[in-house]
Amino acid sequence: MEKKDKDQLKSPMDRRDFLRTCSAFVAGGVAVASGGLLAAKASAKEGEVFWQIDPYKCTQCGRCETDCVLTVSAVKCFHANKVCGYCDLCGGYYRPNVKELNTAAENMMCPTGAITREFVEEPYFEYTIDEDLCTGCGKCVKGCTSFGNGSLFLQIDQEKCQQCNECAIARVCPSDAIQRVSNAHAYKLKDHA
């Protein structure tokens, strides 16, 4: 009798505890099982975790400049010297319909003056990008790909890139040129084989 009373007193707590323990085991089981399944997936491939632009897909729409989460975009113009024609009349350096080939403001393509050039020998000029000034607008790239060898191209500077979980530029890129890449292919360079 006494025992029964005790049981009755205890029973609601026991039931609750029992339910709780059961659910805890179910929850734990679910967590472990899904974790295990996903872990099998996680180890299956080489890690493609960095964002990079495929220069052959890029259309230089200009969104790289405006849509990066950084105030000054992590996208920069790169230059493949081995592809460059070293032309005097450079489509990336001068505005179209340029009248005189000098560095006057009305003739220059780059809005921030990030492209500089140096005379090599007649008639060749070497072009260099100052990445600190570059805003990734892609104007020079457009000029170079439409009128030149396409040696200028846009790339994400991996040092500046914040490695967002979802790249804000990739989300608006009209040609889907931004994809995840592995560490070994952190850059898609044009003078690379």
Binding site: V83, G85, G148, N149, S151
Partner: peptide, 8 residues
């Protein structure tokens, strides 16, 4: 690169 336009 095969894709490079190489106009010049």
């Amino acid at each position: 690169q095969a894709f490079a336009v190489a106009r010049f």
